[in-house]
């Protein structure tokens, strides 16, 4: 049992070292990563979200894009003489 506990402690220490020491080291040296995180914060995004319904910004994006597509298609139909319905 003692060996198992030691393995558990080593595993936790390894995870801690990777996430608390190694990755922050890379993060601090990567302006792209920093900017990427800043953008997530500004837009209230979580890059780990699994589905579109977990990303609140999608609803607004959909409304805006739908409106743009509707307007764009009207222009397209006019230019291609396809009527307007």
């Amino acid at each position: 049992m003692g060996k198992k506990i030691l393995r558990l402690v080593c595993c936790i220490a390894g995870l801690w070292f990777f996430f608390a020491v190694v990755t922050p080291w890379f993060y601090d040296r990567s302006p792209a990563w920093q900017r990427y995180y800043q953008v997530q914060e500004e837009n209230d995004l979580h890059s780990g979200a699994v589905y579109y319904s977990d990303v609140p910004v999608t609803l607004d994006a959909e409304l805006h894009v739908r409106e743009s597509v509707r307007e764009g298609m009207q222009v397209w139909k006019k230019e291609h003489h396809l009527g307007n319905d």
């Binding site: 900017r35 979200a49 990303v55 910004v57």
Partner: peptide, 12 residues
């Protein structure tokens, strides 16, 4: 792949 990452990369 990941939906959340798409929105974040797009915002970038």
């Amino acid at each position: 792949d990941a939906t959340g990452a798409v929105a974040a990369a797009g915002a970038f």
